[in-house]
Amino acid sequence: MDPMPSAAAPRPPRFRVDPRAKHWWTVRALIGAGAALVPQVVAALLVVDAGWLLATSVMTAMAGAGYVLVMPRLRYRVHRWEADERAVYTLSGWLRLEWRVAPISRIQTIDTERSPLQRLFGLATVTVTTASAAGPVRIEGLDAAGADALARRLTEITRSEHGDAT
């Protein structure tokens, strides 16, 4: 299945995220799948005569494996971002696509954030918020140094802007 949006869709943002993001997503998916699988396996081993628990464990393992293998690749093909002096623009998702665009003039805060897992791969997330609770634009899986530079640049651009339309 083609994860890319159709021709009528807005042009995708220009830049891909760092390829290491694939590894980061894979590890995240592994942790998630493990969290779903391990309790079932433990229960299946403890409970005598639990054929159905074994069956759900096998199904969970298969679904988890599919998720771990497919999700990071699809995500990497979809996730894109772009920022200039007019707007911050992102495309994200893997099965469900989501485009977000926020005009520079409406930006309130710019945050960089690095979870322990992201630090492991030298990645960072830049979050741009506006006055609305519904509209933060997040760029996940950027190269850490690049994320800092982007945040600095955006801060510089927004310094000259006024009015957040609250």
Partner: peptide, 22 residues
């Protein structure tokens, strides 16, 4: 549309000096 940009080069380039085309 520039999907061919290599990602790390893209981030570095874009972060340091944002395109002024628009």
């Amino acid at each position: 549309s520039g999907p061919a940009r290599s990602a790390s080069a893209g981030t570095e380039h874009a972060a340091g000096d944002l395109p002024a085309e628009r």
